[in-house]
Design a protein around this nucleic acid. Structure first.
Lengths: 214, 214
DNA sequence: CCAAAGTTTGACCGATCGATCAAGTTTTAT
DNA sequence: ATAAAACTTGATCGATCGGTCAAACTTTGG
């Protein structure tokens, strides 16, 4: 037998199995939290959806609170990861078009994450810690300076950058958070790729024109 | 039965007392449902906030489900009651400006109602019945025809009316549903009247210009 | 090989939930 | 006045919740 095989030293079967099951747990938890909210979600259902007994779930995540925090953290990092295209030397029109497209794409590819975050906000963000006051505020301040610069340079119409972000966030994330409503109005069971494309196109059109960029 | 319901001024002291306590119950329930969602809300807390013992609450509303439905109904009627200004013979610019202002005003004056509704949508609208497929779809179809008419008459740029409504709903209701986030970014504890005014002004500005109405 | 560490699981606990009951009090109709 | 109807409330129920425990099983390191 190959006792000297080095593969296992880097990532033994146990470590790999643990990573795999933790991923299944976080995925199941995200889905259940998105569907039922924190209070409505039960550890039993999360365990069932993850395919493990409930005490086993508590072995990996001591409390429901800790599990929720881990799910939430992953979502916040996903959230802050967008809008790299809003830079001082970017072309405003292209940057906003790219940002809207990226946000709509996020709503399409990660609707559950968006819903967990939205649910947290709706209920007053009791488990968000200081994310809003620190990380998010800093993020907005940084990006707002860029936009203010564009305005001062005469590249776009004067605008309150923070309220502009509120509008962009709302207009894009609504396709994840309120997909049920949108699908019903459009007469569908679920949203189709063409719906997201149309959303991105029209939102971009209105916003660019509204900012004097088209 | 010689008594016709509906007119509280002509009703006896008992009817008036009942109307009063039922209003207190619905108000308390709306607040608790908005804060904790359906699952997270407890009949005990609703009773406590309404100032009555729990069994008394069950006397007026047999089940938590029934109480929630009554709260929800009131909200849906409030929701459908806006946008009377979107009529074929209206001026598009004035109509949209009025609609945005009315929606922002609704977010300011009834944030709890908006949050209960948003919470319901986020979790897949399991208790909305056929509201989305019937009442709301009809509402949107009617208003969309008006907008399509404006487009055909060359009064505004071509636009998908339904996606336009999704954008307007999102951009306005975000000031109710995600007020915590917006307040944090703006560095406030709660939103000020000036914040809502600025939101209405800038949203109107961008939308009108985006639709070629300014 | 063996003992320690890591992992899995059925059974179970106290707390809280929505809901009910039965015995009260108050109001209404006659 | 009186009985029926409407309303109030402390006590309590079964169900479900988050979480724990102890006994098993599996993998790891020496």
């Amino acid at each position: 037998m190959d006792l000297q095989s080095g593969d296992e030293a880097l990532a033994g079967p146990r470590e790999r199995a643990r990573a795999k099951i933790e991923a299944r747990i976080l995925s199941a938890a995200e889905a259940v939290f998105a569907e039922h909210g924190f209070s409505g979600a039960s550890m039993s259902e999360i365990a069932r959806r993850a395919g493990i007994p409930k005490p086993n779930l508590h072995y990996y995540c001591k409390t429901k609170e800790e599990l929720y925090q881990r799910v939430l953290r992953r979502i916040l990092d996903l959230w802050l990861g967008t809008a790299d295209e809003i830079q001082a030397d970017s072309d405003p029109a292209a940057a906003f078009a790219h940002y809207v497209a990226a946000k709509i794409d996020l709503a399409r590819r990660h609707p559950l994450a968006s819903r967990v975050f939205a649910n947290e906000l709706i209920h007053g963000a009791p488990r968000l810690g200081d994310f809003l006051e620190n990380e998010l505020q800093d993020w907005v301040a940084k990006k707002s300076k860029v936009i203010d610069g564009w305005v001062k340079a005469g590249k776009m119409r004067p605008v309150d950058a923070r309220h502009l972000f509120f509008m962009l966030w709302a207009a894009t994330q609504t396709y994840a958070d309120f997909a049920v409503q949108i699908a019903a109005v459009l007469g569908r069971k679920t949203l189709k790729p063409a719906d997201y494309d149309k959303a991105a196109q029209q939102t971009t059109e209105i916003v660019l024109r509204g900012l004097g960029l088209k």
